[in-house]
Amino acid sequence: MASLATPPEVQVKTKWKISKSPSSWLVWGAVIFFFINLVGVIGTVVVSSFGTEWFDGWLPAGWTLSFYQTAWHDYQVAELLKVTLKVAGAVVLIAILVGTPAAYALARRDFPGKRIVMLCFLLPIMLPPITFGIPLATFIYKLNLGGTLLGVIIANLVPAIPFVILVLTPFIEQIDPRIESAARICGANTWQIFWRILAPLIVPGLLAAALLVLVQTVALFELTYLVSGPTSTTLVVALYYAVFASGIRPYQAISAMAVFYMLSTLFILIVALRFVSPTQLVSRVRNTSEEKN
């Protein structure tokens, strides 16, 4: 249809005209102000990690890489990275394995009590982690899993499984169920339908869900903080301890530590953004909350 070809370019054109109005300048000014401060915050961390001394002035007095060495050894960054990767990997794998079938059933079936089940999956995301984190930590310590890697994995799974379900349910919903019927008419059994029809169609959704959970788990602080012990501390929790106990080590070392954390997070983010759009990283709750009403 001719009208289909029109919208995108059109709006760029009209937008361009409007964007010269004062209100636009104000909005763009605010955005730029935000960006400058963001760069300032991150820049401060990076610059100070390379500096020898920085008490006064725009830049440190001299430059050095030695604090990276200090941070790497003192904070055992290698060990932290290993733990973080183990936790994140396990969480992603388990959350996908457990969450995908549930998402499928929720997308395809309407049954009595579905709302309660949905609520059960929605609450861990809608509640501040600290509120259910403390009872959860209590429970995990009760199971003698406090401070262990398994305990940290379990704690991280609590928001991760609902997360996978919330990302995948709308994704599976938009796959036409008639495709499955068609396959069945053609003689495929359930197993074949799953592997030959559904699996290839779900892969993009799975990838998105996995990456989103990965980004989340690496940055998730509160729950890990509450259940982790010396051998199960992830990078972000270690960073918190480092900052909280500042004074023990020079600020530059903490900055270097922060840079390690930042690099690993950004690396994952860059990988993730090749496959998912930035809006996807935040807007997962939308569809399901819409359903509730």
Binding site: M1, A2, S3, T6, V10, K13, T14
Partner: peptide, 18 residues
């Protein structure tokens, strides 16, 4: 037929399209 420019023409008249 589709894509012949008829909707474009209408949108130009309406002012939705310059």
């Amino acid at each position: 037929p589709s894509g012949c420019g008829k909707s474009t023409a209408l949108n130009c008249i309406a002012g939705l399209l310059s």
